[in-house]
């Protein structure tokens, strides 16, 4: 079998005496949508922080697309094709909608020590940005200030920015957080359409969405992976039910 696109081995992160991520070994196969679930405080956000490079692990390794990225800076990992979205929406509020995505395209279009041509009129940046906006269904809002978008639309914009660099993998940190049922359904449909085309690691609280979308699920409890497998196996796993699903249901 081919090497997984993303693989961690024995990943550990401690905060003082608390072990937030406890020897996590995880493999995300190419083309899969792999969900990570777990109760609050299970270490999901820390795991995302370690994978994206915002935090350094105390022990363990991370391999991505054939590279050891354990010690690489955030921006280097992003350039290798590891794009992320944030749990708390993270966009550029003083920019227009399109300019947000143009900036995301620009990050992957060589260096930005270019001082003269207006970026917003550069077809090499604008065309891929428009394509990403169409993909998430925000093309009609392209001329509006980003600050005027609704919460759901901001999450769509966030996803467009992640997609803009044509990444090999998406790290999505609770893309449905704070959404109403209508926006939530739209986001599920969007993720469904991305399935197979992109490798996705999805951290999400919405169990219905996770079991509907995921090819593989890993369950994180107290920082450790207690189970990993197909949705049906996870649903049937006694330990998972006891530790997590039972209390959530």
């Amino acid at each position: 079998m081919a090497e997984p696109l993303l693989a961690t081995a024995g990943l550990v992160k401690r905060y003082g005496g608390v072990v937030a991520v406890d020897h996590v070994t995880l493999a995300v196969e190419r083309g899969h949508l792999h969900a990570v679930i777990g109760p609050n405080g299970a270490g999901k956000s820390t795991l995302i922080g370690l994978l994206s490079g915002e935090m350094a692990p105390g022990a363990g390794t991370i391999r991505f697309n054939g590279h050891d990225v354990t010690r690489l800076h955030v921006h280097r990992r992003a350039r290798l094709g590891l794009a992320r979205s944030f749990q708390v929406t993270s966009i550029f509020h003083s920019f227009g909608v399109l300019a947000n995505v143009v900036l995301a395209v620009q990050a992957h279009a060589g260096h930005s020590f270019r001082f003269w041509r207006p970026a917003s009129r550069d077809p090499a940046l604008v065309e891929p940005a428009l394509a990403a906006l169409e993909r998430v269904g925000l093309a009609e809002r392209r001329h509006d200030p980003a600050a005027t978008l609704s919460h759901g639309e901001r999450r769509q914009l966030e996803l467009a920015m992640a997609l803009a660099g044509d990444p090999a993998m998406l790290l999505l940190d609770e893309p449905m957080a704070g959404m109403g049922p209508e926006d939530g359904r739209r986001m599920v449909a969007l993720l469904e359409s991305l399935k197979g085309e992109r490798t996705i690691l999805l951290v999400e609280h919405d169990m219905d969405a996770v079991f509907q979308l995921a090819d593989r699920i890993s369950v994180l409890v107290y920082g450790a992976v207690i189970a990993s497998g197909r949705p049906d196996d996870i649903r049937a796993d006694a330990e998972v039910r006891r530790a997590y699903l039972g209390e959530a249901a």
Partner: peptide, 17 residues
């Protein structure tokens, strides 16, 4: 654009690459 992006949200800029 990069400068203004940093002003708005530097963390996001790094995450973009």
């Amino acid at each position: 654009m990069v400068l203004k992006g940093v002003r708005d949200n530097e963390r996001r800029m790094r995450a973009l690459g």
